[in-house]
């Protein structure tokens, strides 16, 4: 197809452009080196000037702006105020005004296994290629599914909306494919998507999930207001283990023998969960009673 050509060509030209640009930089390195050898560093350069006279009120003339140019501390403070205004006026209402982020009752916190999976998603930098933000255009809702709502992300520490789609959006990937698809795809993306540029993630099949941190992770989430029950952190790993078993069983049905401690199991758990809460039966945007 034509765009294959266009994008591939552009990417190849970028490699060439980058190399040419860097070649220039190497010339500079050589040139600077030669220059340095031919001279000697003037480590301390002599200079002279009269000392500052006492500020003289009578001399406070000229352009009105001269006033601030003589006062560095005031300059610093006023700059802070000038930049502070925009920040405060934009950020504070988003935190304080409830209607900005209408809650959705079907949106629930991640399970411990999904949380681990999400942390691996962050660790691998999946967000550098995949967005999690379906915009309200028909072309996007057709392709990916329901567009994104503010209330869906309330338990996302950090958010993972992304800024570049080298791969497709993943907000509605949950439930789109069987577990086995993700299993094969993460091991070798081209096996499921011929021509894919995505790197393989073999190490997720060798490395085992570190479950010693589960309790601390869930506790941290609770501290930040994610509504897990008070006694949940202590039992989180039981829940995690049960969910691992479920995924291993589902993979088995498709003829895959997986070990439940593998990191990939957590990743599958997360990928199957992303953006699915909104599909639950009662999608009520519960607006606060007294806005």
């Amino acid at each position: 197809m034509d765009t294959l050509l266009e994008i591939k060509t552009a990417y190849v030209l970028r490699v060439i452009g980058g190399s040419v640009y860097l070649t220039g930089a190497f010339l500079m390195v050589y040139n600077v080196r030669k220059t340095v050898i031919s001279g000697k560093l003037i480590a301390n350069e002599d200079a002279e000037a009269p000392p500052l006279e006492k500020m003289d009120q009578a001399k406070e003339s000229g352009h009105w702006h001269r006033w601030i140019e003589r006062r560095p501390i005031q300059m610093l403070v006023i700059s802070l105020i000038v930049v502070g205004i925009g920040g405060v006026l934009e950020i504070v209402p988003t935190f304080l005004v409830k209607t900005n982020i209408p809650t959705i009752s079907s949106v629930k916190p991640y399970t411990p296994l999904e949380l681990h999976g999400r942390d691996i998603y962050v660790r691998e930098g999946c967000y550098t290629c995949h967005s999690q933000m379906v915009r309200p255009f028909r072309s996007e809702t057709e392709r990916y599914g329901e567009y994104a709502k503010a209330g869906e992300f309330v338990y996302d520490h950090p958010f993972q909306w992304g800024s570049k789609r080298t791969g497709p959006d993943l907000l509605r990937v949950g439930g789109k494919y069987p577990d086995s698809w993700h299993y094969y795809h993460m091991y070798d993306p081209t096996s499921m998507s011929p021509g894919s540029l995505m790197p393989p993630y073999m190490h997720m099949f060798e490395d085992l999930l570190d479950t010693t941190t589960t309790k601390r992770k869930i506790e941290a989430m609770r501290t930040m207001g994610v509504p897990y029950a008070a006694d949940f952190p202590a039992h989180a790993n039981d829940h995690l283990s049960a969910q691992q078993d479920k995924i291993v069983a589902s993979l088995k049905k498709d003829g895959i023998e997986a070990q439940k401690e593998m990191e990939i199991i957590a990743v599958i758990a997360y990928l199957q969960r992303v953006g699915t809460d909104i599909k639950a039966k009662e999608v009520v945007e519960a607006k606060p009673a007294n806005p």
Partner: peptide, 21 residues
């Protein structure tokens, strides 16, 4: 919020995290 020397969670969540970020 740190949970170890090498891992922490952003204090903000979702839309607010996006705006601050």
């Amino acid at each position: 919020l740190p949970i170890s020397m090498t891992k922490s969670y952003s204090w903000y969540a979702g839309v607010q995290d996006a705006l601050v970020q």
